[in-house]
């Protein structure tokens, strides 16, 4: 177990104790939600874990770095930005995938861009967003998010 794992579990433990002291029924409700969401995310988690395994054994590093590596250039960045925008992977699960890509030679820029567009832009939820918030706000938010995700990624690639 590393420090981060310990920290996350300790944080959850402390919050849980405080919650129990504050309100027992609410805490029970929260725990029930936690169990449900755990099982809800589990199939996708397994699938992504399998994909990570296959990716690391079958796709050579040179191939990954050619598509999303340092030398892939701006076209590579645009590709991952677009992929992040259309894919519908729970963001929690995207981090191990991003880490495995990073290990295999993807650039920091493309990994950061991928995570940012994946979380900020929802093509699947866009129709709902348009209906509730109006076309102007929804399109502006998603469109500008695409651009700032690329800027964030480029800055991260430059300073890290």
């Amino acid at each position: 177990m590393n420090v981060t794992t310990l920290f996350i579990n300790a944080l959850a433990g402390v919050c849980l104790v405080f919650a129990l002291i504050k309100d027992r029924t609410k805490t029970k409700q929260a725990l029930k939600m936690a169990v449900i969401s755990f099982f809800r995310i589990f199939p996708t988690l397994l699938a992504i874990i399998i994909i990570i395994g296959l990716l690391s054994a079958f796709v050579p590093e040179s191939q990954i770095s050619k598509i999303v590596g340092k030398n892939a250039g701006f076209r590579g960045v645009l590709t991952v930005a677009f992929l992040g925008a259309i894919l519908h992977i729970p963001s929690l699960i995207s981090f191990p995938l991003a880490a495995s890509l990073l290990e295999k030679g993807a650039s920091i820029t493309s990994v950061a861009v991928f995570i940012t567009t994946l979380t900020m832009i929802g093509m699947v939820t866009l129709p709902l967003e348009i209906r509730i918030l109006g076309k102007k706000l929804a399109l502006l938010r998603n469109g500008l998010s695409f651009i700032i995700a690329i800027i964030i990624g480029l800055i991260m690639g430059a300073i890290l």
Partner: peptide, 23 residues
């Protein structure tokens, strides 16, 4: 490797999310 790393933190993350959602 990735599964172990994930399974050690996922329950804690889910508990935090549940607590935030309720409180």
């Amino acid at each position: 490797g990735f599964f172990m790393e994930m399974i050690l933190i996922l329950p804690a993350v889910m508990i935090l999310m549940g607590l935030f959602a309720v409180f």
